[in-house]
Every structure is written in C-alpha cells, then in structure tokens.
Amino acid sequence: MHAIGIEHEHQRPDRDTYIRILSNNVEPGQMINFEKIPYDEVNLHGIPYDYRSIMHYDGSAFGKYNFATRKRLPTMVPLKPGITLIDNFALTENDKEKLDIIGKCRRPGNKKNSTCQDHDLNCETYKISGFCTHKFYENTAKEICKASCGFCNDSGTQLDETLSKECKDIVRF
C-alpha cells in the first residue's frame, strides 16, 4: 500500500486523537516510525482512523525488550476503550475503500450508506479464522459480520441465501 501512496495509520496527522505514543519505550533510533505526517503531505481520503488497518502497527512495534517479562514494551496505547493494537494481516473495509478511491474503482457492495455493514471491529480477523463459513457461527456471522463475511448483494443489502461457493476474487495483470 506504500507503493500507491498510503501511509501508516499511526503516522496520520490526527493520530493523537486515537493513540498515545510512549516514546520512552521505543528502541533508540526508531522514533522515525512514529513521526506524524503533516496534513499537507498526506491524503486521508475522508476515511476515519482505523485501528485494524493493515497499515497500523501493533501496540509494541519497535518497543524496547524487557528481559524480565520477555516481552517488548508497549509503544502505542489506543485512547478508545476496548481496543487492542494487534498485527493486522487482512485489509479492512477502510483499507479497501482507500484502494478504490486511489484506483478509481468500485467493488460490489462497497457503498458508504449500505444497509449491509459489520457491527464488530474484529470481523476481518474473524473471517480469516473461518468464522464466516463455520456452520456453528453462521447465524452470528450473518448478524454481526455480514459485510466482511460476504452476506451482501451488489446493491449493498443483505442476502437471504448463504455466500456462494462460486464467488471468487480475480486478479488480472
């Protein structure tokens, strides 16, 4: 995402509203990874801060190592209660929307005012872990993670039937 001009979430100029940087815990020489990018050097595309973005470091990124606990010290603390900064391995809907804006494309179901939306910040993670396709969680997935799990039609409304097994993303070069 850097190659097309997308910067790290924790370097956004408005990041102090969402996280606190614990500079004393950062490894020497690594504060460059936490410098804010000025408003005139970044385009936020009108997309809100995204704790789960693939472009957000985990909470102990570049942290000094604590030999007593055998863990890295925290370097970022979320200001929103209930948020834990983890390694994110999947694109969030906000990440995809940025890609759509930069690439001037539209994906089916990507509608800002869609009635088919996720109601949990962890839906992308749940999807990766198989939550969406597990029979036991099917009804819950349809209720709280319908967008990430693919329970929406092209108009952005919820589908009555389950996700088609024939639906695939196709990449062409």
Rank of each mutant, 00 (worst) to 15 (best):
His2Gln: 10
Ile4Pro: 00
Glu9Leu: 06
Gln11Gly: 00
Arg15Lys: 09
Thr17Ala: 10
Ile21Cys: 08
Ser23Ala: 11
Asn24Lys: 15
Asn25Asp: 07
Glu27Asn: 05
Pro28Gly: 02
Gly29Ile: 10
Gly29Gln: 02
Asn33Asp: 12
Glu35Met: 04
Glu35Ala: 12
Ile37Gly: 02
Pro38Asp: 10
Tyr39Met: 13
Asp40Pro: 00
Glu41Ala: 12
Asn43Arg: 11
Leu44Pro: 01
Gly46Arg: 10
Ile47Leu: 13
Pro48Tyr: 05
Pro48Ile: 07
Tyr49Asn: 09
Asp50Glu: 10
Tyr51Asp: 06
Arg52Trp: 06
Ser53Val: 05
Ile54Met: 14
Met55Leu: 15
His56Met: 15
His56Asp: 12
Tyr57Thr: 13
Gly59Asn: 08
Phe62Asp: 03
Gly63Asn: 06
Lys64Phe: 01
Tyr65Lys: 08
Phe67Ile: 03
Phe67Tyr: 05
Phe67Pro: 00
Ala68Cys: 04
Arg70Ile: 05
Lys71Leu: 10
Arg72Ser: 08
Pro74Glu: 09
Thr75Met: 01
Thr75Leu: 11
Thr75Tyr: 07
Met76His: 08
Val77Asn: 02
Val77Arg: 09
Thr84Arg: 12
Leu85Thr: 02
Ala90Ser: 14
Leu91Phe: 15
Thr92Gly: 06
Thr92Glu: 04
Glu93Lys: 12
Asn94Glu: 13
Asn94Cys: 11
Asp95Trp: 14
Lys96Cys: 14
Lys98Ser: 00
Leu99Glu: 03
Gly103Leu: 10
Lys104Gln: 14
Arg107Trp: 12
Gly109Cys: 12
Lys111Trp: 12
Lys112Ala: 13
Cys116Asn: 06
Leu121Asn: 11
Tyr126Lys: 03
Ile128Glu: 11
Ile128Ser: 07
Cys132Met: 11
Thr133Ser: 04
His134Asn: 13
Tyr137Ile: 01
Asn139Gly: 01
Thr140Gln: 06
Ile144Thr: 00
Ile144Lys: 03
Cys145Val: 12
Lys146Ala: 09
Asp154Thr: 13
Asp154Cys: 08
Gln158Leu: 05
Gln158Gly: 05
Leu159Asn: 04
Leu159Arg: 09
Asp160Ser: 15
Leu163Ser: 00
Glu166Trp: 02
Glu166Tyr: 09
Glu166Asp: 14
Cys167Ala: 06
Cys167Glu: 07
Val171Arg: 12
Arg172Glu: 13
